[in-house]
């Protein structure tokens, strides 16, 4: 369910109508690229490999569409969040706190940490403009829901498989918490047929 929710939110064709922030989409492309380098080193399942390839392809297609096709409608004035303020601390943290000090593992850790905050430029734009297109809110809802569903999955795996990945869990909790405000607005406004707009 989490993967399907994630899949729905990475669909590049959504951006035909959603107003997505280029900076967030560049961060997601970086997230998938650094996380799925293990495509070259380990095979888990056909499902796992295909999903990784789809996520990578979708993230680059989205960046391409925003950058090339919708350059005219892309409003850089609202996309002012400084991504280096995310990438630099996250990069430093992944060197300091990781499971194993190896190149692939540090990149995986970087990816996990970066994903937890990659949506901030998008949320920042919404807080600045004070509103969001309904299609954009659906995109955000599924992107947030996906990690929340993983939290449930991790509780399950902890009890039934003894699996526990502290880095993924902490980052997943942070990621989900960042969406809480948005989830509240989505349920109280968008699901009741109103447009998402913030009080001035």
């Amino acid at each position: 369910l989490a993967d399907m929710s994630h899949m729905k939110s990475v669909n590049p064709f959504l951006i035909v109508s959603a107003i997505l922030v280029l900076h967030s989409q560049l961060l997601f492309a970086l997230v998938f690229t650094t996380r799925y380098l293990d495509l070259f080193t380990s095979f888990i399942s056909l499902y796992n490999t295909s999903m990784k390839l789809i996520y990578i392809a979708c993230s680059y297609a989205t960046v391409y569409l925003i950058y090339m096709k919708f350059k005219a409608t892309y409003d850089g004035n609202h996309d002012t969040f400084r991504v280096e303020f995310l990438i630099v601390p996250v990069g430093g943290l992944s060197f300091l706190v990781n499971h194993d000090f190896s190149p692939l593992e540090i990149l995986w850790t970087f990816s996990i940490y970066l994903e937890s905050v990659a949506i901030l430029p998008q949320l920042f734009m919404i807080s600045k403009t004070g509103e969001a297109e309904t299609i954009t809110t659906h995109y955000l809802f599924f992107l947030g829901l996906y990690r929340a569903l993983y939290l449930v999955n991790w509780i399950w795996r902890y009890y039934f498989e003894g699996f526990f990945d502290l880095i993924a869990v902490v980052a997943g909790v942070v990621q989900t918490v960042l969406y809480c405000d948005f989830f509240y607005l989505y349920v109280t406004k968008v699901l009741k047929g109103k447009k998402l707009s913030l009080p001035a």
Binding site: D3, H6, R35, D38, T41, S42, I44, N48, M51, K52, Y55, H99, D100, S102, P103, L104, E105, L107, W108, Y150, D165, A168
Partner: peptide
């Protein structure tokens, strides 16, 4: 080029 751990999740 050392491998990372085996991560079975997406």
């Amino acid at each position: 080029f050392r491998k990372g751990l085996k991560h079975d999740e997406l």
